[in-house]
Write a protein that binds this DNA or RNA. Sequence first.
DNA 1: TATTAATTTTGATTCAGATCAATCAAAACA
DNA 2: TGTTTTGATTGATCTGAATCAAAATTAATA
Lengths: 250, 250
Amino acid sequence: MLHDTPLRNHLDISHVRSSCASCSLRELCLPVGLNDDEIQVLGDVVSHKRKIQRGGYLHHTGAKFQSLFAIRSGFLKTCVLEQDGRQQVTGFHMTGELLGLDAISTDTHTCDAVALEDSEVCEIPFAKLEEISRIIPSLMRHFHKMMSREIVRDHGVMLLLGSMKAEERLATFLLNLSRRFLVRGYSESDFNLRMTREEIGSYLGLKLETVSRAFSKLQDENIITVDNKHIRINDIARLRMKMGNSSCVT
Amino acid sequence: MLHDTPLRNHLDISHVRSSCASCSLRELCLPVGLNDDEIQVLGDVVSHKRKIQRGGYLHHTGAKFQSLFAIRSGFLKTCVLEQDGRQQVTGFHMTGELLGLDAISTDTHTCDAVALEDSEVCEIPFAKLEEISRIIPSLMRHFHKMMSREIVRDHGVMLLLGSMKAEERLATFLLNLSRRFLVRGYSESDFNLRMTREEIGSYLGLKLETVSRAFSKLQDENIITVDNKHIRINDIARLRMKMGNSSCVT
DNA sequence: TATTAATTTTGATTCAGATCAATCAAAACA
DNA sequence: TGTTTTGATTGATCTGAATCAAAATTAATA
């Protein structure tokens, strides 16, 4: 489950490689069938484009919320800081995904968003989005579905954290990444991780050593080949088996 | 964390004991300051009221989504079924809370909702809600905040599952319940659990024996008094310590 | 390029929580 | 009312993952 639902194909907009200046908003609306006028209206909303260097922050916890961000390219993590300075990763995000939905509730960002590689995002002023979605019902509907999908995703992660063991978690994680790369036109079986073992562990509720061991175990079984950050899935069927009983699969 | 955010006081509507026929919708709109006409419009949306007996289902996984449900009274759990017949509890829900947000994404319910005591809900046809929220911006805004709050809540649970140990989880859980009872006008230190140890365990990612032991431990330390389902919090400050000190793992 | 820092892997040991098992208490029911 | 069923507590043991530790690899920087 994690980040993939049956809705995926309908909602996912990442495969749309638009070169228009209004960037992600065009993509955001394409799947819901708007006409040209409507697209024009939307284009005006998404004015600001922003680049974030690897390691840079898109926003900090506590910052005033004003805009959602649609990822145009790159790879980011969201994380919350704990008292002792350590951090817990709450998600990894890639092209076509929407960041900031959590901040709507309090008008304040509840997490940090950090670029794990040079990234580009489009800023979508939320007030304007709400305004326009009143005029374009299909946009409103689409937005509601995206928020809902975020909830479903989180439930998937909760399931993973609450009931899976280390190896199952890693298998689920890899399959989720694999699917997301595939949908974006990249190889589903051959990709580079953008995050460290520690970040994976933080996300999966495991220590980095445990993540490393789980990688090694899967490699020993010839299910994957690991070369530091580079992952090759040799036997995706068996990897799915590893995920196990997982009801949480799509 | 869990279900409480700084926004709570603004968003929480459960303390409003309205006796109007339009039940929860009146409550749903009250905090956002609608005028009487607008409330009238809203009242028409929430036509159907429904009672569910203890053990009964509000909806099943896979069922077609048409309406959100506002809990008018009672107590419910949401859970997903695993292949092996076991179930994982994804949440406990009480008066004033909104169910079904996860179903918007696929037009299909992604979980079961089961009454843990006799309950009453108001059905809110989602299509109508979307329609009306176009006319009443403050309602739309309120709805978006509620969805966002659900996301924040889930992140809290993810954090709990990913980084807390058994006793911390239980402390967090009890404090969360306590707060929610308080907000609804009940005692924050003296209440009855509606769910079994097994259901608590499922929600917290623990086995029922571990939950039981954690209860006993907290009782031994005189922080709480446990009499089967009845819980008395003797020292809420120390209970908070239990939640926090936690060596801030991860 | 050399040097330093960060990341990853692997091993040994410990420990929290799962599992197995028995008893007890409380509902549900005949 | 006694009987069955379900839920809760507690103990003994086992195990998966955390922790501690060290080496190996890779990336960053002077």
